[in-house]
């Protein structure tokens, strides 16, 4: 290179590094609500079809004050709690068995692959015929809907436990049951917990759908009722409740995950 005056080397390594912006989501929410409220106030959004955030807030307040919120939310939580617990527990048992035993895997993979893609809500009419219009059909729909994703995640989680850790345990002569308890299960825990997050979201979707068919109480039933009565502010208040419920479930699972996986 010919002799010339020294030139500074320009920095070109910036960007592509996400950094936290704690205020940004709050600002975004505030901006969306503010614009929405302004558009409603200006008459750009007809109140009948798209009530303002203030109206939805009022509907939510009266829903809470009347005690209906507790009744609807309680019914939904009961169905989610029971259905998810049954589905996740059974799915966990089957998924772990498939991960641990070749025979369970050989039988389980084709069966799960065949049944997993069926939209479980499509089976609700069948469950109503089997179990009646009451709680069991709704709980069964949620349990079945959460069973399959839990099976898949638990199986995958066991399958992904590094084999070198199992070999290590074998090299020290640990009995099989101890290897499962001390190596395989803790190693599979992150994958199992990720599966729980997914199945909890599915449970929330299914409870709403199930409650729209023959339920007196439940957030899904409330949304359907208010929609039929053209009470859109109340309908959207129900949607807000669902959103908050999803956030709460996610936050609880996040806490549980952070505690159980504190070694990460």
């Amino acid at each position: 290179m010919a002799e010339s005056a020294p030139r500074p080397v320009a920095f070109r390594g910036g960007g592509f590094q996400p950094s936290p912006r704690r205020w940004a989501p709050w600002l975004a929410f505030a901006a969306i609500l503010g614009l929405w409220q302004a558009a409603s106030a200006a008459g750009m959004l007809p109140s009948l079809f798209m009530p303002s955030p203030v109206e939805i807030g009022r509907a939510l307040g009266s829903l809470a004050a009347s005690g209906d919120l507790g009744r609807h939310l309680g019914a939904s939580l009961y169905r989610i709690g029971l259905g998810w617990t049954l589905g996740a527990a059974a799915g966990l048992a089957v998924g772990l068995a498939m991960g641990l035993w070749s025979m369970a895997r050989a039988v389980g993979i084709p069966v799960v692959s065949a049944l997993f893609p069926i939209p479980k809500i499509a089976l609700l009419p069948l469950f109503i015929l089997w179990f009646g219009i009451g709680e069991p059909s709704k709980v069964a729909t949620i349990a079945l809907g959460t069973f399959f994703p839990t099976v898949v995640s638990a199986f995958g989680a066991v399958d992904n436990v590094p084999r070198n850790l199992i070999r290590m345990a074998q090299s020290f002569g640990l009995p099989v049951a101890e290897i499962v308890r001390k190596v395989v299960l803790p190693g599979a825990l992150p994958g199992v917990l990720s599966g729980f997050r997914i199945s909890a979201s599915i449970a929330l979707i299914l409870v709403v759908a199930a409650e729209m068919i023959g339920a007196e109480f439940g957030v899904g039933a409330y949304i359907l009722l208010t929609g039929n009565l053209m009470q859109i502010d109340r309908l959207l208040a129900g949607v807000v409740v669902l959103s908050l419920l999803g956030l709460a479930i996610g936050a609880i699972l996040g806490r549980v995950e952070a505690w159980l996986l504190r070694w990460r």
């Binding site: 850790l165 002569g173 640990l174 101890e178 001390k182 190596v183 070694w263």
Partner: peptide, 20 residues
């Protein structure tokens, strides 16, 4: 590759070989 259990402390990893 060391084959350490990431969810156990140093002490826990060493003790694993004795626990049974």
């Amino acid at each position: 590759d060391f084959a350490l259990l990431p969810w156990r402390t140093v002490e826990g990893n060493v003790a694993l070989a004795l626990e049974h």
